[in-house]
Computed example of a mutant assay.
Amino acid sequence: MGAAARKPDAGLFPCEAEIARRLSQTPADWRARAVVLERDGLPRIDPIMGGRYWPAVLAYFNKRYGIASFGPSAMDGTENLDALR
């Protein structure tokens, strides 16, 4: 299913016009900026899915602006569930 045949805001792989809208860009401005941002790690358009994986696009911008997601913290010891009684 090509980009033209699917819904513009289709789930995890939105079309470029929808990504531009979500990022407050015009489609033309987004096309130009995406070329530059891809050199910095912006996910490319997946050739099979026909769009950029939206969670990866969000992760790219979160990392770019210092809001990277955090992983699980180190365990601080064994849980003692008997202490709850």
Rank of each mutant, 00 (worst) to 15 (best):
M1Y: 00
M1P: 01
M1W: 02
G2D: 02
G2K: 03
A4L: 01
K7T: 02
K7V: 00
D9Q: 14
D9L: 00
G11P: 00
G11E: 15
G11Y: 03
L12T: 14
L12E: 14
F13R: 02
E16G: 11
A17S: 14
A17D: 14
A17F: 00
E18C: 10
A20Q: 05
A20E: 04
A20Y: 01
L23H: 09
L23D: 13
S24L: 08
S24D: 13
S24M: 12
S24V: 02
Q25E: 09
T26N: 05
P27M: 12
P27Q: 09
A28D: 04
D29I: 03
W30N: 02
W30A: 01
A32E: 06
A32G: 05
A32L: 15
R33V: 04
R33N: 13
A34K: 08
V35Q: 10
L37S: 02
E38W: 00
R39G: 13
R39W: 03
R39C: 08
R39N: 09
D40R: 15
D40N: 08
G41S: 08
L42N: 03
L42K: 03
L42I: 11
L42R: 03
P43L: 08
I45Q: 03
P47N: 12
P47Y: 05
P47G: 10
I48F: 05
M49V: 01
M49R: 15
G51R: 01
G51N: 01
R52D: 03
R52E: 03
Y53S: 02
W54H: 05
P55H: 04
A56N: 07
A56L: 12
V57F: 07
V57K: 02
V57L: 06
Y60A: 03
F61W: 11
F61M: 02
F61L: 07
R64C: 04
Y65E: 13
G66T: 03
A68P: 09
A68C: 07
A68Q: 10
A68D: 15
S69R: 13
S69Y: 12
S69F: 04
S69W: 09
S69A: 15
F70M: 10
G71A: 14
G71C: 10
G71N: 12
P72I: 08
S73T: 12
S73P: 09
M75S: 14
M75L: 15
D76W: 06
G77S: 11
G77E: 14
T78R: 10
T78L: 11
N80G: 09
L81M: 12
L81Y: 15
A83L: 13
L84S: 05
R85S: 10
R85C: 06
R85F: 11
